[in-house]
């Protein structure tokens, strides 16, 4: 009964909530951030960029363990030790979780540094909590760097959206 199957819904509360509760330093990027800015493109996963300092890696590893992530596409019998060292040795990971697909990015293509991304981000309330959302200009840079056909479409939408927001702000100011 696919029409009744709502289990595939992406549930942001447990995913972002775990990061929040463990004090992880992160910024929401990707399609969810685009939605927060007003994009009309649906998204099926949530991606976050995260700080790479050792303390944050420890907090992130604890949060991921609590969520119960599994490496996406990996065989079930593949040994995967999820700890700060594993995160330090890698950068970007794609996970399956019972709450939906979840990506963590230590190296964000198109962005010079996490600190810059973070400094330009803004707290927005989504999924019942205040989380950092990447700036629209950074989302454009990321999509431009990814450069797949869907990314190029999204660059066009984000550019239009930025223009739309600027015009609405100008109207609001006048």
């Amino acid at each position: 009964m696919p029409f009744e199957d709502l289990g595939d819904s992406l549930r942001l509360e447990p995913l972002l909530g775990a990061l929040d509760q463990h004090g992880v330093d992160f910024v929401v990027v990707g399609g969810v951030a685009g939605l927060a800015h007003g994009s009309a493109y649906p998204t099926y996963d949530v991606d976050v960029a995260y700080a790479r300092d050792p303390a944050n890696l420890r907090r992130l590893a604890d949060a991921l363990a609590e969520i119960g992530v599994r490496l996406r596409g990996a065989p079930d019998d593949l040994p995967f030790q999820l700890d700060a060292k594993t995160l330090a040795n890698g950068a970007n990971f794609a996970f399956d979780t019972e709450f939906g697909s979840f990506g963590i990015l230590g190296d964000v293509a198109g962005i010079k540094s996490y600190d810059l991304l973070r400094s330009r981000s803004k707290f927005e309330r989504i999924a019942g909590m205040d989380v950092r959302i990447a700036a629209l200009n950074d989302l454009i840079a990321m999509k431009r760097a990814a450069n797949r056909p869907k990314d190029r479409l999204m660059v066009m939408e984000y550019v239009e959206l930025a223009d739309l927001r600027r015009r609405e702000e100008e109207v609001g100011d006048s």
Binding site: L10, G31, V32, L35, G38, S39, A40, R125, E157, E160
Partner: peptide, 18 residues
């Protein structure tokens, strides 16, 4: 669609998108 989304709060935009 974007114009409609901008009339919502960010949280509502995300809910609608998901």
């Amino acid at each position: 669609l974007n114009e409609g989304n901008l009339r919502l709060a960010p949280e509502q935009r995300v809910q609608r998108g998901l």
